[in-house]
Computed example of a mutant assay.
Amino acid sequence: MRMMIPRYFLSHGFYRNAVKEAREVLPLTSTALLTVMGLIAGMIATLIVTTFIESNAARLLLGRLPHALHAGVIALVDAPMALTVLSGSLILLLTALWITVWLVIVRRQAPLLPSQALMLSVWPRWALPVLLPVAMVIERAGPLERPIGVVILAALWIVSEIWATVRTTLDMSKVTGVRGWISVLIWILNPIVLLLAGFIVLSLTRLDMTGFLIRLSAG
């Protein structure tokens, strides 16, 4: 691991070749990192949810939910630890599904070990541990500063996740030698990309509601 960390940041080509040749895939380390990053992602998601759940826009949206679902959401928000574990587990599951998609699609052209795919998908998410202290500072901020800080944190998280998926896709393409359009297709199938695209499309198709919710939150 001591060799792979500097390789990843300073000599990425050597890092990629080491993974391609399965010389240093570090399955236990990658699994541990995936678990830790899932927990950190869950903590950040919990901070975002608990910050905005009291906003006027959130109250409006929650009021439109069925009673049972509304009660379930409130119960989760009132149990931050459970919300952290649940959201972190969901993120880990989505990551695992995307890794599986890669393994299934490239298995005939360039067989890929699960440990190789895991390493190529986990290591690009190095920004998550960096965001953790930022989240801890924001959590202790005042009632006026905290929402602004959470918006910035959420934006940084989204950017880091998009970059991680791009980095993983580029590395996977180099390691497996799959065609460019296949790599782009698999990148589009990433759950984070799909959710973000769906959110953007929904926001653009309902501009009146989007604007109303933004004004409501700001108020």
Rank of each mutant, 00 (worst) to 15 (best):
residue 98 W to C: 10
residue 98 W to S: 07
residue 98 W to Q: 02
residue 99 I to N: 01
residue 99 I to D: 10
residue 99 I to H: 00
residue 99 I to Q: 07
residue 99 I to S: 02
residue 100 T to F: 13
residue 100 T to L: 14
residue 102 W to N: 08
residue 103 L to T: 10
residue 103 L to K: 15
residue 103 L to D: 04
residue 103 L to C: 09
residue 104 V to Q: 14
residue 105 I to S: 11
residue 106 V to Q: 09
residue 106 V to D: 02
residue 107 R to C: 05
residue 108 R to M: 01
residue 110 A to D: 14
residue 110 A to I: 00
residue 110 A to M: 12
residue 110 A to P: 09
residue 111 P to N: 03
residue 111 P to D: 05
residue 112 L to K: 03
residue 112 L to C: 08
residue 113 L to D: 12
residue 113 L to P: 06
residue 113 L to M: 11
residue 113 L to F: 06
residue 114 P to A: 02
residue 114 P to I: 04
residue 114 P to C: 08
residue 114 P to L: 04
residue 114 P to N: 00
residue 116 Q to H: 10
residue 118 L to M: 13
residue 118 L to E: 11
residue 119 M to E: 15
residue 119 M to G: 14
residue 119 M to Q: 15
residue 119 M to R: 15
residue 120 L to Q: 04
residue 120 L to K: 08
residue 120 L to R: 10
residue 121 S to E: 08
residue 121 S to V: 03
residue 121 S to P: 00
residue 121 S to I: 05
residue 121 S to R: 01
residue 122 V to R: 12
residue 123 W to H: 11
residue 123 W to Y: 13
residue 123 W to G: 03
residue 124 P to Q: 00
residue 124 P to H: 03
residue 124 P to G: 09
residue 124 P to E: 12
residue 124 P to I: 05
residue 125 R to H: 13
residue 125 R to Q: 15
residue 125 R to Y: 10
residue 126 W to F: 15
residue 127 A to M: 08
residue 128 L to E: 09
residue 128 L to N: 01
residue 129 P to A: 04
residue 129 P to Q: 09
residue 130 V to H: 00
residue 130 V to Q: 12
residue 130 V to K: 09
